[in-house]
Design a protein around this nucleic acid. Structure first.
Lengths: 125, 125
DNA sequence: TCGGTGTTTAAGTGATTACCTAATTACCTA
DNA sequence: TAGGTAATTAGGTAATCACTTAAACACCGA
């Protein structure tokens, strides 16, 4: 097994692990909550916390690697957006494994996603 | 502010933080998945992992403090059970904050919980 | 081209985490 | 009561995490 295989086999680099690890920080959860209401630049996000800008930048990087946010550079600004699918898919995926009641919820979720695709202006997604 | 107030104000000791922190470990998520299928003793759980028994005991303690599992001593054995409500309530609670589509899911979840209360033998909860 | 702003990278530090082994506690049975 | 099993607590260590400041990079407008 070559080093790359070892790395990719490590749980640390599996998608679900990255999502749960990202969510384990209160600051990162708060960033996601802010982004749920509106896209924000890195500076706007940093202004909402008392820690340094580089620290916020690191948190944003963790969220992006986990697939929970996306970023787009516009001029000198970097705009961050929520990627809600990764969040709901991962949490639903795990909860379903632990908790059978989640199965009907998942079907309901799929139905809602379908409805959402038809009327994309309907909610925050 | 006395030391106790400082402690209890710290995010580290808030319920949601404890749940997400508990879920950030792959081993702890796996323990919950095992307990979803059947109650198990500490020894039975430890046998499923390659790490030492004290290490598993620590993981179980983290899960219990987070309210995700409960334990009951029977003779020399300690039986662990899943506490599914804490898991679904916390995840739903947060996802709802980030992702508006979770609201109808939460209503659906409440309806299912109600149905479950009437027929407790119906599923793993 | 040059100073100013927005953002990330680099390097280092203190705190926390996960793990181990050894010791301890609790209980059961002969 | 003594020996054995189940489980946790104690003590110590290596690795990881979150944070800081300083430096670098990228872009804008005068």
């Amino acid at each position: 097994m070559n080093p790359w295989q070892v790395l990719s086999k490590s749980l640390k680099y599996q998608p679900m692990q990255r999502v749960f690890e990202a969510l384990s920080s209160p600051i990162r959860r708060k960033i996601l909550a802010y982004l749920a209401h509106a896209d924000l630049t890195a500076g706007e996000i940093a202004a909402k916390f008392e820690i340094s800008k580089p620290a916020v930048s690191q948190h944003l990087s963790v969220l992006e690697v986990a697939g929970l946010v996306t970023s787009e550079k516009k001029g000198q600004y970097v705009h961050y957006s929520l990627a809600p699918d990764q969040l709901t898919n991962t949490l639903n995926g795990y909860v379903q494994e632990v908790c059978p009641v989640a199965k009907p919820l998942k079907r309901e979720s799929a139905a809602l996603a379908k409805a959402r695709a038809n009327k994309p202006q309907d909610n925050g997604l």
